[in-house]
């Protein structure tokens, strides 16, 4: 779901960098407000590694195949650390695996990172909306929502971005229908990543609950 180099206009790339830059600044400021900002770096660093590897794991959803993104999971577990983590992960993906590209790094970071922050806030809603539910149900349920909707929002942004930037000379209808098919293939992936987020959150809650406080 990464947008590669050369397929979208330069203005969109520049806007992507601008948005990603602002969001990075905001995330870093939020991180700096924590009593000990370095305390969460081990967790963030390990999940960056997981994010980096995840895009090489393909899941066949006939007729296409999709790969894991895990941006919702990063948002749920890392909070504001998720945005820099995704930015760094995408940078290395562009360099090493050839997913995405350096000109589209900003666009991709905004596309995956901002939904991660949304996922974090969704997950935090468990403390208000989920208060009536049993503890573990609220935890698992909102983790699922965060993991699934984080990815879903990214897919939606991807869909809008690539459909509105089909260059002249391409058959718009054909391209549009394939893009829609690919986006629909992300619905099962949303369920997979949502369940995965739930499992991880419940596991962390059992073994090391303080990791989820961030």
């Amino acid at each position: 779901m990464h947008i590669p180099d050369g397929l979208i206009p330069a203005q969109v790339c520049a806007a992507g960098y601008a948005i990603a830059g602002l969001t990075t600044w905001y995330s870093l400021r939020q991180m700096n407000r924590k009593p000990d900002p370095t305390a969460e770096i081990p967790k963030a660093s390990l999940l960056t590694a997981a994010f980096f590897v995840a895009s090489s794991i393909y899941i066949p959803v006939p007729p296409v195949s999709v790969h894991l993104i895990l941006n919702g999971l990063l948002g749920v577990v890392l909070g504001y650390f998720a945005f820099p983590a995704i930015l760094i992960g995408l940078f290395f993906q562009a360099l090493m695996i050839g997913h995405g590209g350096l000109t589209t790094l900003g666009v991709n970071a905004a596309m995956m990172g901002i939904p991660a922050l949304v996922a974090y806030h969704l997950f935090n809603l468990r403390q208000t909306l989920g208060r009536a539910l049993p503890d573990r149900v609220a935890l698992g349920g909102f983790a699922f929502l965060g993991g699934a909707l984080g990815l879903g929002l990214s897919t939606l942004i991807f869909l809008v971005l690539v459909i509105t930037t089909i260059p002249a000379g391409f058959d718009v209808d054909t391209e549009r229908s394939i893009i829609l098919a690919l986006s629909l293939a992300h619905i099962p992936l949303m369920l997979i990543e949502g369940s995965f987020t739930t499992l991880l959150v419940l596991f962390l809650h059992r073994v090391k609950p303080e990791l989820l406080e961030g």
């Binding site: 370095t38 305390a39 770096i41 081990p42 390990l46 960056t48 590694a49 980096f52 090493m96």
Partner: peptide
């Protein structure tokens, strides 16, 4: 090497705590 870089970062900051 990249993955090791991430793990090494994690280990470094975990030790600092």
């Amino acid at each position: 090497a990249v993955i090791w870089g991430f793990i090494g970062t994690a280990l470094f900051f975990a030790r600092g705590k």
